[in-house]
Nucleic acid binder design. Structure first.
Length: 199
DNA sequence: CCTGCGATGTCCT
DNA sequence: GGACATCGCAGGA
């Protein structure tokens, strides 16, 4: 079933990031269904987390969507070439987010290969936050997209992932966050080949 | 207005 | 292991 707004509008982005492992992410862009199983996430909290774009209430053109009620997409361009996809969680004004970092491709694989410009189903089809967005057709144009709508959504397909099968470790690429860089808020499905290659 | 750089990935050595 | 592409945004002037 499609994850409802209630799922997103809760506190504790860390718990939500963990719960999203084993859920499914779908897009229907230009009428084409693509999607897969989420195997890697990271949590970003508006409180006491220097790595979070909304840290200290920072409110800019880029971060304003984070202050909406949970259940919308936060997309942004990184390094001038990759779009990263986050879900916004919590209630309005409590700007938490979860970054989706790894996906096991399941649905619409031919279209995803086409978008990625590769011919074989291999790890770099959807392993990595900048790659899965390409495969799914997510761009900065999807900034603010309703995650319970018909373009981007998540589903619980009934899978129960065992606690010990989810590996928690420090987040990637946030050395600037000082001691918060050590927080174990990156979650990966154990033994999945579809987690991002990042250390 | 101007400058520096990032929640990355790829290619080269 | 290291260089670097490429551009919107953040922050300072």
């Amino acid at each position: 079933m499609k994850l409802p707004l209630d799922f997103y509008r809760r506190p504790d982005p860390v718990g939500i990031a963990r719960e999203l492992i084993g859920k499914h992410l779908f897009t229907r862009i230009d009428g084409v269904l693509t999607g897969g199983r989420i195997v890697e996430t990271e949590a970003y909290a508006h409180l006491n987390d220097q790595a979070c774009h909304s840290h200290l209430g920072r409110y800019t053109a880029r971060t304003k969507i984070m202050y909406e009620p949970g259940g919308v997409a936060y997309t942004y361009l990184i390094y001038g070439r990759y779009t990263l996809f986050n879900i916004i969680t919590n209630e309005a004004g409590k700007a938490d987010a979860v970054l989706i970092r790894g996906l096991e491709p399941l649905e619409g694989i031919p279209e995803m290969l086409l978008r990625r410009g590769i011919t074989a189903v291999q790890r770099n089809l959807t392993s990595g936050p900048g790659l899965l967005t390409q495969a799914l057709g997510i761009t900065t144009a999807h900034y603010g997209t309703d995650l319970t709508g018909n373009f981007i959504w998540m589903e619980d397909q009934g899978e129960k992932v065992a606690y010990e099968d989810i590996i928690a470790s420090p987040r990637v690429g946030i050395d600037y966050a000082g001691e918060d860089a050590a927080l174990p808020w990156r979650f990966r499905l154990k033994d999945s080949k579809w987690v991002s290659p990042a250390k």
